[in-house]
Each structure stands twice: as structure tokens, then as C-alpha cells.
Design a protein around this nucleic acid. Structure first.
Length: 439
RNA sequence: GUGCCCAUAGUUUAGUGGUAAAACUUCGGUCUGUGGAUCCGAUGUCGAGAGUUCGAUUCUCUCUGGGCACCCCA
């Protein structure tokens, strides 16, 4: 024997990414199907783009550090810096800005891109994931937020989630900025730092949070803490100084909640500690938050980003949008036992009793396919029992055996593997029969 | 990037300083013009590399991968 030169290649997938075997792909397709259906029911059109973007696209917004350390970035053969897109918003902003003269606004767009980030994988966060992005461009008024949140809620509903499975947390960057910069007289960098602390409130103990706020804000911290602990908007407003009570940011939240309630969305909650990590948000921000004990995580997040398109030198184009990841929604559906049961694509399996009937079986399959039926034909010439067993193990619901009798009579016994029932049918009747099964 | 835990057939798990076992799955055979069965058999360089040792799957280190948390958050 010669020594082995070839080293075996590992069958593991690349770190932090997933293989989708047919059963996984079935779930993935189900998730995408629901997302598409809901988005399109609101008149949103699907768009797409390459996963490769020039690194500058992200530098402009997020800074060198994130691009260098948290993205997949490399130089191509032409010495261009390239990044695997870590999010879709800059891409869609670029696309909209590029052709803004050609579009009549508002634009309602969605996409389900795969996104990459170079990070340590952990729960709910992998290196590659898919994320529904839905955005509306060109509406300055709160109508945009109402529509976007309605869409988010419609998706939850379509997945079978009930309103009391989650809450819609809302806040407004405008009032938060006002509060930090005017009411508490913090400098922009101080208020930026405190925003990050506020955003993490739920991740630390009450004392920790109080302590961190005190050391960051100083003597005014009690005022801030009281505001952040308000249970609802009324309490929050009552703690604001007189002249701030009718601040636009407050009015927007109030109107948003009222308008949502009017159209039947009653599970919105004002959440003064909701900030969202991104700096580009300029107004309302929101999150759909799973209230089950198992997850306690945001399923959706989004908000208004009126100034983002400015980086392309475009005139201001207001925008509201959100993202929803496939990893999170999978976890949620699992929690509430809402994952669909796997069904293979083949509806009928044709068993071949003797090798000489193989081509007859192929012809029968062709006829059925012409009637839009998904048919697989056995190729093994194995014993009939093994063929049926194969169909059964692969969850194919119906079996037709082709042998001497069938060829002679042109009639087929269609066997339902679940019930064991057989129906004698002509080839042309099979499509109708399938419809009657309602599969 | 940091820390903790983990790694044995395809899967779930036993087990030992003297090169491994069970169940299920898969594949092959057995039996039946109609299935989830029976019986027989096959499938592992114990994640990779190095070290300690007469001898390592077992002990040590490094790496890789997985899980969780931190960092960061899209």
C-alpha cells in the first residue's frame, strides 16, 4: 500500500455558520415565506444586493474599529478594500440615494439578506445570519412608524404569536437627547456614554445601574433615575420640567401609542431605557420584546433614521425601518412550539416492481408532473417492501406501485401510507385526488 | 479579543494508563405484489498535533470546533 497523501478534509462547517440540511431548510423557507407574505401584504417590494460592499460604506458610519475588528474585511486583487455586509441598512440607503430622482416616494422596500460579523458565536448570535429588513423612505410624519410597527406586528401574528407573547417597547431619541443635554446639561460625549449605560439597564442589577448612573451623571442622577424608572408615559411626563412636557419627542410617543391602540395594537409599552445601540437613529425607536422567561430578548428592533442618507450627499430622505433575525425567530417559535412539521417536497413515490417497468414508471411520472405533482421514482429495483419503506421513512405520503397489472389495466392503486387506504385511479385522476386530500 | 465548561461510531451516551461498549440510525444480506417487522453482518486512526510514559482514547500543553458569558452590538 502506498502511504496516504491526501489528508481528510473536515466535514464541519466553518466556525459560526450553519449548514441547512433539508429539514433545516424547510424551517428557513417557512420563516422567509411568512416574512415575504406579511411584507408584501403591506405593499413592500423585495430588493437585493451583493454581500460584498466597499469597506468605506461602513467606515463612514461606524468607524474604523468596528470595520477592522467586527467584520469580514479583506483586500481584493485590485487592492480594493471589501467587506462582507454586516447589516443591510447602509446598502439600502446607498441604493435609494443613488436613484432618488427616479423614484416617487414613499418607497416601501424589504429584503432578507444574509449578513456576516466576525465575532465569537453565542446564543442568538452567529457569524452568519439572515435578517428581514423592511424600510419606508420619504415619510416624515408618524404615519411611517405606525405602518412599520403594524407590519412588525403582522409578522408576529402570521407566525402564530399572540399579542400577549410579546410587548412592543417604544421610546424616542428626541426626548432622550433633550433630557440628557438640556435638562441634565450633559455634554454630547457624556450623554453618549450615559446612553450606553441606560441601554444596558436590564443586563445589570438595580444597584449596579444606580451606581453607574451616579458616577456618570453626578448630582443630577436622581432626577434621571426617577425618569428612567417611570412605569408609563404619564409618570415620565409628570417628572419632566414644565416646559418639556409638550416636547415634540413626548408628543410623538403619545400619538404613536394612541394611534396604535386605535388600530388594535394595544401591547405597546413606553420604555425610557430603550436606546438601541446605533447612533444613526434620530426619532422613535422600538423593539419587539419576547416576554417569555426563556428568551427575554428583542426579536425586532428598529426606528427612524432621517439623516443617514446624508452621507451620500443626497438631500434629506427620512426613513423608518426595522430588522428581524432568523436565529431569534427560530428560538421564539421553538419556545412557543410554533415550528412547522417537516414535509418533503415529493408527494408521490412510484415503486417499480420489475426492472422492465422502469420506463413505464418514468412515463407515468412525467404525466403526473405535467399536472403539477411532485413525483419521485424508485431507481433501486429493490424489493417492494424496501421501496415502500424508503417512501415512508422519507415521509412521502403516497405510493403507487407499477407492475404487470398496472401496465395492463392503466389503473393505479394510490396508497396512503398514513391510513393504509388504497384508491384505484386512472393516471389523469390522480391530480384531482391529491387536491381532495388537501395537501 | 477575554474567561469558564465540553469533545468517544451518523446520533445519544458507557468505559479504561495496556488501542473500546450499548442503543438507535444508515448501508448490505434474509423474508413478503404492499411499509414502520425478524434474523445476520458492516461502519470508529476515542476532534488534530506535541509532550510525559515501556505503553495515552485516558495525564499535561497547544490548536481546532461546540456551548455559555464578557467585550461589542448590526
Amino acid at each position: 500500500m502506498e502511504e496516504k497523501i491526501n489528508k481528510k478534509i473536515s466535514t464541519e462547517s466553518y466556525k459560526g455558520v450553519r449548514d441547512f440540511y433539508p429539514q433545516d431548510m424547510f424551517v428557513q423557507n417557512y420563516i422567509f415565506k411568512i416574512m415575504r407574505k406579511a411584507a408584501e401584504s403591506f405593499g413592500y417590494s423585495e430588493y437585493g444586493a451583493s454581500i460584498l460592499e466597499p469597506s468605506d460604506l461602513y467606515r463612514a458610519k461606524t468607524g474604523d474599529e468596528i470595520v477592522n475588528e467586527q467584520t469580514y474585511s479583506f483586500k481584493d486583487r485590485g487592492d480594493r478594500e471589501v467587506t462582507l455586509r454586516p447589516e443591510m441598512t447602509p446598502t439600502v440607503a446607498r441604493m435609494v440615494a443613488a436613484k432618488k430622482r427616479e423614484f416617487s416616494f414613499p418607497l416601501r422596500w424589504y429584503s432578507i439578506p444574509n449578513l456576516f460579523r466576525y465575532e465569537q458565536p453565542q446564543k442568538g448570535r452567529l457569524r452568519e445570519h439572515w435578517q428581514l429588513n423592511a424600510d419606508i423612505f420619504g415619510i416624515e410624519e408618524i404615519e411611517a412608524e405606525i405602518e412599520i410597527i403594524s407590519l412588525a406586528r403582522a409578522i408576529m401574528k402570521e407566525f402564530g404569536l399572540k399579542d400577549d407573547n410579546y410587548e412592543i417597547r417604544v421610546n424616542n431619541r428626541k426626548i432622550m437627547n433633550y433630557m440628557l443635554e438640556n435638562f441634565l446639561s450633559l455634554s454630547p460625549s457624556e450623554s453618549h456614554a450615559i446612553s450606553k449605560i441606560i441601554d444596558k439597564k436590564d443586563k445589570m442589577s438595580g444597584e449596579d445601574f444606580t451606581g453607574k448612573v451616579r458616577s456618570a451623571v453626578g448630582e443630577e442622577s436622581d432626577k434621571l433615575l426617577n425618569l428612567l424608572h417611570s412605569k408609563n408615559l404619564e409618570e415620565f411626563i409628570s417628572l419632566l420640567p414644565e416646559k418639556a412636557r409638550s416636547h415634540q419627542g413626548v408628543l410623538e410617543i403619545k400619538e404613536l401609542q394612541e394611534r396604535l391602540a386605535e388600530i388594535g395594537i394595544k401591547n405597546s409599552v413606553f420604555s425610557p431605557t430603550l436606546m438601541r445601540g446605533f447612533d444613526y437613529y434620530t426619532g422613535i425607536v422600538f423593539e419587539i420584546f419576547d416576554t417569555s422567561l426563556e428568551n427575554r430578548r428583542a426579536i425586532f428592533g428598529g426606528g427612524r433614521y432621517d439623516d443617514l442618507l446624508n452621507i451620500f450627499g443626497a438631500e434629506k430622505i427620512p426613513a423608518v425601518g426595522f430588522g428581524m433575525g432568523d436565529v431569534m425567530i427560530r428560538d421564539i417559535l421553538e419556545t412557543y412550539n410554533l415550528l412547522p412539521t417537516y414535509k418533503p417536497v415529493a408527494e408521490i413515490y412510484i415503486c417499480v416492481l420489475e426492472e422492465k417497468y422502469q420506463n413505464y414508471a418514468n412515463m407515468l411520472a412525467q404525466k403526473l408532473r405535467a399536472d403539477d405533482i411532485n413525483v419521485a421514482v424508485d431507481l433501486s429495483s429493490r424489493k417492494i417492501g424496501d421501496q415502500i419503506r424508503y417512501a415512508d421513512k422519507n415521509l412521502i405520503p403516497l405510493v403507487v406501485c407499477v407492475g404487470e397489472n398496472e401496465v395492463k389495466n392503466e389503473e393505479f392503486k394510490v396508497k396512503n401510507l398514513k391510513s393504509g387506504q388504497e384508491s384505484k385511479l386512472k393516471a389523469v385522476e390522480i391530480a384531482e385526488f391529491l387536491k381532495s386530500l388537501g395537501s
